[in-house]
Amino acid sequence: MKQFQGRVVTPGEVTAEAVVTTEGFNTLASLQMALQFGDKEVKCGDQNNPQLHGKPLFNKALCLPQTIGSTTGGLVLYCACAMKRNPACMLFANHIDSLAAAGAVLADVWVDGVSMPVVDSLGDEFLNYVKDGMKITVKANGIVEVE
């Protein structure tokens, strides 16, 4: 088991299975089709991301460097949370980007009964270490345990 200290963007505690991308996570390309057509597993639809394409994202600990792509990204993430089809948590190796931050903040302020802890600045070592299927535990103080 290894611990990483990050910065809490939106608070919460959760344990979930890791799904990992070392490339930028394109929120619109990844989530829109799955949400639109009721894919309960929310399989990633981003054809340009072979690490994630086709993998379930719902209730997973999504480990990523940052999000990329369309500025609908934040509202797509907000919709996923409001529809309760969101990842269990989002864990950023880098500083969070503006689109992901918007989605996380919108969900935190405007959606009742949904918790999606978001931690950023976990560092490159975190993303090098974590692999698909590992058990992730997010603590309220921004500590992320990987085992």
Partner: peptide
Amino acid sequence: LVTSFGLKVMSPVYDLMQK
């Protein structure tokens, strides 16, 4: 604004706008 489409899946957005 970026959101121009009345996609059914985006209902949470329209609910927020209505608020």
